[in-house]
């Protein structure tokens, strides 16, 4: 359905990835094409172990490809320096917020990315505070990261990535472990951002809210689908009889 367009932020062309022989040598992705254009909002779903996270790791150069190439603004990325440039423009929000927050205080953590973009200390501090303010989290600046709740950690890790003003976002199961209220807050926030993104989630309702194109990984390659078809269904309603609509 989607062809890699010339103006894509990043694109994967015919990539393959297999775990090293020492880890079983299992092939996860083969002959896979993928791209993300500015403003595009892709929802990626699929069963555990189908290679969703591996795909994001390939895009950001954390997994080394066994074939194919990664393009960043149409230029092949060949070395660590190239991936460094890509990572500064494509923000990856990890599945585990605990891994993402590695400073004792929230402010230093959010300012870490801007500092790596070459900002001075004061500028990075202002940028971090602005980002926290825009997420309604200015009171978090001096909080200790290990004392935050799960939802707060997720929001802080999102702030840490957004502070770098990324062109594109990669979100790996952003609702994992969040309660309904935190999920709703996150959903509203993502809907208000017009930055291009790839969202991985098992939560269909959430994915449908924050994305407008949907794909899955089938037989080690991307398969585009349109999941929004009408059908009768049964599902649990937390909170019972409150009025709601079905899209």
């Amino acid at each position: 359905m989607e062809q890699p367009s010339a103006d894509a932020i990043f694109a994967l062309e015919g990539i393959a990835f297999a775990y090293p022989a020492a880890q079983g040598g299992c092939e996860v992705l083969r002959e896979l094409d993928f791209s993300l254009a500015p403003g595009q909002r892709i929802g990626l779903y699929g069963p555990n172990g189908s290679g969703k996270t591996t795909l994001l790791r390939c895009i950001t150069g954390l997994c080394r490809l066994s074939a194919g190439k990664v393009l960043f603004h149409g230029v092949p990325v060949e070395d660590e320096e190239g991936f460094h440039r890509l990572r500064c423009a494509v923000g990856y929000v990890l599945q585990s917020a605990d891994d993402q927050l590695f400073f004792p205080t929230v402010l230093e953590d959010v300012a870490f990315g801007p500092l790596n973009l070459g900002m001075g200390a004061d500028e990075a501090r202002d940028c971090a505070l602005d980002t926290l303010r825009s997420l309604g989290m200015e009171s978090f600046a001096d909080r200790l990261t290990h004392r935050l709740s799960g939802g707060e950690k997720k929001m802080a890790s999102l702030a840490a990535v957004l502070a770098m003003k990324p062109e594109a976002l990669l979100l790996d199961e952003p609702t994992g472990g969040l309660d309904m209220a935190s999920q709703d807050r996150l959903c509203e926030l993502l809907k208000s951002l017009d930055v291009a993104r790839v969202t991985i989630s098992h939560d269909w309702d959430f994915l449908a809210e924050v994305s407008d194109a949907f794909c899955t990984i089938q037989d080690k390659a991307i398969s585009w689908t349109s999941p929004l078809t009408s059908h009768t269904h049964r599902h649990a309603h937390p909170g019972g009889g409150s009025p709601h609509s079905h899209g």
Binding site: R87, G91, L94, F112, G113, L117, A160
Partner: peptide, 9 residues
Amino acid sequence: EAMLLRGFA
């Protein structure tokens, strides 16, 4: 990896 992803050099 998380540090590299945020452009740590």
